[in-house]
Write a protein that binds this DNA or RNA. Structure first.
Lengths: 255, 255
DNA sequence: ATCTTAAATTGACATAGATCAATGATATCG
DNA sequence: CGATATCATTGATCTATGTCAATTTAAGAT
């Protein structure tokens, strides 16, 4: 199992009990799926929720088995991936707090979810939740918005996968990851510098995301370092030295 | 403008008037966004809808300008694409009836939509529709389901873009396209054979979808022909001769 | 400290797919 | 019916990225 040594980037624990979590104190209360619920509705929903923790590398759900539970990410990063019959793998998304994981209205996931860092999620049984969703438009609305964001980013990555060079892909990943990590940390009330962060993915995980090999990813890091766009310490700690140039590489229009 | 000569694959006209369409007779009444609406609600919605027709090649909306209208595809195929500052292009999805086009709750599209064939859509003003959506949970629910399907297929294509060979990509496209076209035709009550269809995309459009060049796509067609998996007439009319083998190439597990 | 292990880097070489260029089909128009 | 234009195919290279192998770095255990 990889990543054993990763320190979860969010270290504070919520004070939720494990059976009847105090949702009011939840890390993602303000922005997650539950943010649109009033306290009555929340009290109802709370009855079916349960906290779960995963260690970095753990599988959260897989392709083949029907989903028992959906979940909201409270803490840590979740990797979503797909796999071809012969084993070729492609990461199709990263989930940060307060993302939802699972496929609403279906009992089969067409993908795998695994914990990239240590992860805490708030789970709820599939059937109950689907019923609940149908009778609670505000909840469904919020989940719809989260889904639209995921669709936007999936399409963004399609452009990246189909048309960018290896160097551009790495630049795009660094920018995207730094922003999402930064936001997740701020959300938790933690200190964070946008341009200085721990890259929580291994080269293998990066290459699965970018549709490249480990070696090619490594070479692009060397090029970015040599060009003075980034600085890397201990192969994990990234400092972005020239964000505008990275933006240009990543195809972000700069006005 | 390309594709001038394309005959729209759905030739019957709906009998909807152009200002107050008779939704009950709509091609996609049974399966589209409106399928969940009762006739009262439908009568309301109808007040803000308007039919629009586009010729093959026409732009429906673009990246830069805010969306004025959303739409449901009644007829024809819509291409969604993204473009890098230097002009590199990636198709991120194909819309068939009864797909929704536009980005709910936002006034900016992060993509271009253009008509791949002649297209008829049912449009509605953005602001009115967003309001309507918020007050009509059944409508929002249906749109949510359509969006989930799009997310599923975007992720499917991410695996394709990131990890498949050129030959596999072409196989996957042919299978996917034949199915969706078949369904769209059946939906319209037209005759259709799953394994015999007109490929409505040019090689350029295919290559934009698959993240390849025209020449590479062409070569893969030749290989598939030579292997006896497909037959091509006049460079447009495809017959799938060996679907199981194509399925294997496309990474579809066969049990 | 030294040993062990996993991950990252770097180099040498191979190859899938891109690029450039020529030829061949198909459809349109006079 | 031939002329023209567009699109598709095929061939000859080139190149970015993959593959294979050796080395280096970092981290943890003893």
């Amino acid at each position: 199992m990889h990543n054993k040594n990763v320190v979860p980037f969010i270290t504070e624990k919520s004070d939720c009990g494990s059976d009847h979590p105090v949702c009011e104190a939840c890390e993602v209360r303000a922005c997650g799926m539950c943010s649109e619920l009033n306290s009555d509705t929340l009290r109802e929903l709370r009855k079916i929720t349960r906290m779960k923790e995963y260690k970095a590398g753990d599988q959260i759900f897989c392709d083949e088995e029907p989903t028992e539970n959906y979940a909201t990410i409270k803490n840590g990063i979740v990797k979503l991936s797909k796999i071809l019959p012969d084993g070729r793998q492609q990461t199709i998304g990263l989930g940060f707090p307060p993302d939802f994981i699972g496929r609403a209205f279906k009992d089969k996931n067409a993908s795998f979810a695994s914990a990239l860092t240590d992860v805490t999620v708030c789970t709820f049984p599939r059937d109950l939740f689907n019923d609940y969703l149908k009778s609670t438009p505000s909840l469904e609305h919020k989940l719809f918005e989260l889904t639209l964001n995921e669709l936007d980013s999936a399409r963004e990555w399609m452009l990246m996968l189909g048309r960018m060079t290896a160097l551009e892909k790495v630049a795009a990943l660094l920018l995207n990851f730094s922003e999402r990590l930064h936001n997740a940390k701020l959300l938790q009330g933690l200190q964070s510098e946008l341009n200085k962060f721990e890259l929580l993915l291994t080269r293998a995980e990066i290459s699965d995301f970018l549709g490249l090999t480990i070696e090619t990813v490594s070479r692009q890091f060397s090029i970015l370092k040599q060009k003075g766009l980034i600085n890397v310490q201990n192969q994990r700690f990234i400092e972005i030295l020239d964000r505008p140039s990275l933006d240009t590489l990543a195809g972000h229009e700069n006005y």
